[in-house]
Design a protein around this nucleic acid. Structure first.
Length: 139
DNA sequence: GCCAACGTTGGC
DNA sequence: GCCAACGTTGGC
């Protein structure tokens, strides 16, 4: 069981947009980065991830679940790009901000901190539990 | 709005 | 296969 983090600009695709899709979920399309794509290829149905808002907000705002494994990105004809489908699971009672994450030595090794530009990234189980705890989310 | 960091592209 | 140029991302 692996844990993940999906990053999105709320002006493009927000947590609210994701919630509005309900259990049907939505493709995590638009990824044009090999590292991010490769992580999506590793994802299994049922695995969980954080939904992170970049740009102005910069916070973990909820959890999502993978509901379909990697398949071709319907938004492009380029066969290189694939994506998974995810659905919203639970909104954070207290969004965990990037500042909080950076200030916590237990979270200093997060990819979010180390490689801020990667839009799909793995999260360790320890990081998962800690952020869930801070956010008031069920792990 | 700026800029650093990083990934990709294309010429050689 | 290297590397300069360029484009994009995202934090500040």
């Amino acid at each position: 069981m692996s844990f993940w983090l999906f990053k999105s600009e709320p002006s493009t695709w927000s947590w609210e947009d994701q919630v509005a899709k309900g259990d049907a979920g939505e493709e995590w399309d638009g990824v044009r980065n090999y590292q991010a794509r490769n992580f999506m290829r590793e994802m299994k149905v049922g695995e969980r991830g954080f939904f992170y808002h970049s740009q102005k907000e910069r916070a973990v705002v909820g959890t999502v679940e993978v509901i379909a494994e990697a398949h071709p990105d319907s938004k492009t004809d380029d066969p290189r790009w694939e994506c998974v489908d995810i659905k919203a699971v639970q909104a954070a009672k207290r969004p965990v901000t990037l500042d909080q994450i950076k200030d916590d030595p237990r979270l200093s090794e997060m990819v979010l901190v180390k490689n801020s530009r990667l839009s799909v990234q793995p999260v360790t189980e320890a990081e998962w539990r800690l952020i869930c705890d801070l956010a008031g989310l069920d792990p």
